[in-house]
Amino acid sequence: MDNLFDTLRQDYVIRAMIATLLLCISCATMGVYVVLRKMAFLGDALAHTALPGIVLAYFLKWPLFVGALFADILTALGISWLAKREKIKEDTAVGILFSSMFALGLFFLSGKSVRQDLTHMLFGSIINVTTKEITFMAITTLIVISFLTLIGKELAVTSMTPNYARQIGINPDFIRTLILLVLAITVVSSIQLVGVILTSAMLITPAATAGLFTKRIFPMMLLSTVFAITSGIGGLIITCIYNYPPGVVMVLLATLLFLISFSIKSIFKRS
């Protein structure tokens, strides 16, 4: 046990803890809107389309997150545009755009030997987090929180009753685009920490668990953050004892919390 506390006092562990906390707060709160507005697939797609952007940035020698952010914003706008303009459903639009973007990325990538870095982007590296990435994460958290508090009412109204929102002079499409942009920023900064595959998990799973208990937005955000931080910090501590990738353990803990809540809910509903 002493050994564990010694490990936890290490510099890199403390940095990872701070990063995890920031990540959990921004993902869990944004996740509530992702769940309420049924944008889970979209969140996942944003996480994936960041990859071609990263590839492009890698070749152009830009900072990687600029490429990722660029690709994500492009995808976010493209999806809204496709879904509004063509007579296809939104999830089809998401599917088409995100897999084509990905194919494009792989097409340019084949034959080159950067797959190592890509695997790294897929699984993330919260243990090796740099101060720069923490700063980026902190800015993201600040953006998310100010976004959610400043236009909280507009967000709530457009999520629950878009028609009413339009009548009182709020443009739901505009709010939606704003959400997508903030979501894109959140996703891009989380990718650096937990990787493409697990970013959507940190967005969706805690919020979904909270959604089992309440449908009111503010309590849902609080609960979601609590669940996220429990699994985030818990995952990090377990990683220090057993040698598993941290992102993975976090997601497994979050899923476990969901399954437990789901069972409790089912039992209570029956009695």
Binding site: A40, D44, F123, I197, A201, I204, T205, L212, F258
Partner: peptide, 27 residues
């Protein structure tokens, strides 16, 4: 069985399953 939106459930299962797979593979 659940009151959650379909896509939320898929998202939860999806990431849980993948995380499990990666945990095994990382060993």
């Amino acid at each position: 069985k659940s009151t959650l939106a379909n896509d939320t459930i898929i998202g939860v299962f999806f990431s849980g399953v993948v995380a499990f797979g990666i945990a095994v593979v990382s060993r």
